[in-house]
């Protein structure tokens, strides 16, 4: 069984349980933690940690996935029946959890130097804030999983993730190697 199928099985199981009697916020959240991790460590490296993520950002992503502006096969059935209130409640619930430390290694000095140059040029902290922890609708990206960071940036660049045209335009000015370098530094923060 490959990873993707495994995730699907875990997730479907969670969805069935939850849809039967999804009343409390904890029960609603159980659908999410089936993949994003009960303790905040996702079950697969392609999945983001959402514990401690910024409330506004979680809400906006759920909203965009429901609208179809952000396409994700796994998330589509989850968000389909969520009301705006549900989305805000889930966002508040997960943002109140402590940020997950994935114990990723710090990037090397050469990576950091190159990263600083790229980040200065692109003005990354203009949105992601000092320390890359974001705020409001801007995501916390420091110490997110490396694989998720690389995938997300490449998806922005290719247009596969189409709900932020600015990230597409900005990342299109960088190579895949640049993006991996950025991800190494951010993941290791």
């Amino acid at each position: 069984m490959n990873h993707r199928i495994a995730i699907w099985v875990i997730f479907s199981f969670g969805l069935i349980i939850a849809s039967a009697r999804a009343e409390t916020i904890e029960e609603k959240a159980a659908v999410c933690t089936a993949c994003h991790g009960e303790k905040g460590v996702p079950v697969d490296k392609s999945i983001p940690n959402i514990f401690g993520q910024n409330e506004g950002y979680i809400y906006i992503e759920l909203r965009d996935m429901k609208k179809g502006a952000r396409k994700n096969d796994l998330m589509a059935p989850v968000v389909e029946n969520l009301s705006k209130e549900d989305m805000f409640a889930l966002a508040a619930y997960f943002s109140a959890k402590p940020w997950t430390d994935l114990q990723q290694p710090r990037a090397g000095a050469a990576d950091v130097r190159h990263f600083e140059s790229m980040a200065t040029s692109a003005g990354c902290v203009g949105c992601h804030q000092a320390g890359y922890i974001g705020a409001g609708t801007q995501p916390h990206i420091a110490s997110l999983g490396y694989d998720y960071l690389v995938k997300t940036m490449l998806d922005f660049r290719s247009g596969a993730r189409a709900n932020n045209s600015w990230m597409k335009d900005l990342l299109n000015t960088y190579s895949e190697d640049d993006i991996k370098q950025m991800a190494r530094v951010l993941a290791g923060m």
Binding site: I60, S121, G123, C127, S165, W166, K168, D169, L170, N172
Partner: peptide
């Protein structure tokens, strides 16, 4: 100054491209 057309993103950052400091 970079230009790239995109439709109105419903309240999201909408620059229609990018500007980058020349490092």
């Amino acid at each position: 100054y970079h230009v790239d057309s995109s439709p109105y993103p419903d309240g999201k950052l909408w620059l229609g491209g990018a500007f980058k400091v020349i490092p």
